[in-house]
Design a protein around this nucleic acid. Structure first.
Lengths: 203, 203
DNA sequence: GTCTATAGGGGGATAGAC
DNA sequence: GTCTATCCCCCTATAGAC
């Protein structure tokens, strides 16, 4: 319900109705509405982030000298989350919740999100930096930012894409399509000349 | 306020407080809270979408035979929106609102968003399809989906990136970085072989 | 541990005076 | 057109019986 309607848009009363419990039980077991959300998120996000790290470690261990490819690193980051959306209905909902978490603005959420995301982010930043020695730090951060946006939007809205495309795009293709797209973006060469050209054209 | 706290998270009472008006005035002039949001959005979204179409038409007119490049098309789509975030504070807020609109789930919002987004989407889909004859329709839709996610996330959260990167990434670089990244993604070749390989690795 | 009952404060919308 | 006062509902959280 948090996934579909957002935090502010979901009342505890609608939750207890769906769960056939009473209101006091929520506060007894979880203390507050925000703490309930945190519990809902953490139950699955912990294992999911661990899975991402395991995949990354594994492909680094297996890699020839020079480390894993961009595709392998992105695969470790993206796949555990994005495969959620075409498995169980529950996984699909958690995927939406996960995507939403990236742009909830309540201070307590931002803290929650960063607490469980920053270590992961830095680990993947280091791996990508090694795999892409030609990309300056600033640019790598921008590209990770874009990748997170594309991934989060896929988590929250790929069902919309299925409808808009009239069934042409299926969620089961999301992972390979996303990795193809992102890895090409990360590898993009960006001659200063071309960037200047676009800037001038805009002004 | 809608941009920062979302629709459900923003009360009319907090709005009238900030605007120094009374509650009845809102309902007299806008009829309802949802209609107020629609008015807020439409005042700026109409001109912005027109600007995107104008830019696209202009670069198509100016292009040599073969039509405009992917970069030019993406520039027409992305720039009018993303330049919002590093101009006025008001523009920055509207950028956030615009990004948020892509993943508000209330039925009335979905209708609003698609009503003003679908025509634009189809126009750009046609242009991109022409510029990328080797990319099948299904894949192009996925890539537009990813591009929208990256753009929307940039609109809503690039201030976070400025903080996380400790000032290394500045919003004024968002447009060229985004266009570099996306255009490479759109041009990506995707040998079926590689995609199968990744799929197998996952299973 | 579990429940009912209620506190105590918003929420959006509206009636009716001016 | 504008404002005050108010309706009526829903919200989170808690007290206190069992």
């Amino acid at each position: 319900m948090f996934a579909d309607q957002g935090f502010a848009g979901t009342s505890l009363r609608s939750i207890i109705g769906a769960a056939n419990v009473n209101l006091a039980a929520v506060h007894y077991h979880f203390k507050s509405k925000e703490a309930l959300l945190e519990a809902v998120v953490l139950r699955r996000l912990g294992p999911l982030n661990q899975q991402r790290l395991d995949l990354l470690n594994e492909c680094e261990r297996r890699a020839e000298k020079g480390g894993p490819t961009v595709e392998e690193i992105l695969n470790a980051f993206v796949t555990p989350a994005v495969t959620l959306i075409h498995h169980t209905a529950e996984g699909c909902l958690f995927g939406k919740l996960l995507g939403r978490l990236h742009w909830e603005t309540r201070p307590s959420f931002a803290i929650l999100a960063r607490k469980h995301f920053n270590p992961l982010f830095q680990r993947f930043q280091a791996a990508l930096s090694k795999a892409l020695p030609g990309v300056p730090a600033e640019q790598l951060l921008w590209r990770m930012h874009f990748a997170i946006g594309a991934m989060a939007h896929t988590l929250t809205s790929s069902d919309t894409l299925e409808v808009v495309s009239q069934g042409l795009c299926r969620s089961s293709d999301a992972v390979p399509e996303l990795i193809d797209f992102l890895s090409a973006g990360f590898r993009a060469s960006s001659p200063v000349q071309r960037r200047r050209k676009l800037s001038e054209r805009r002004s």
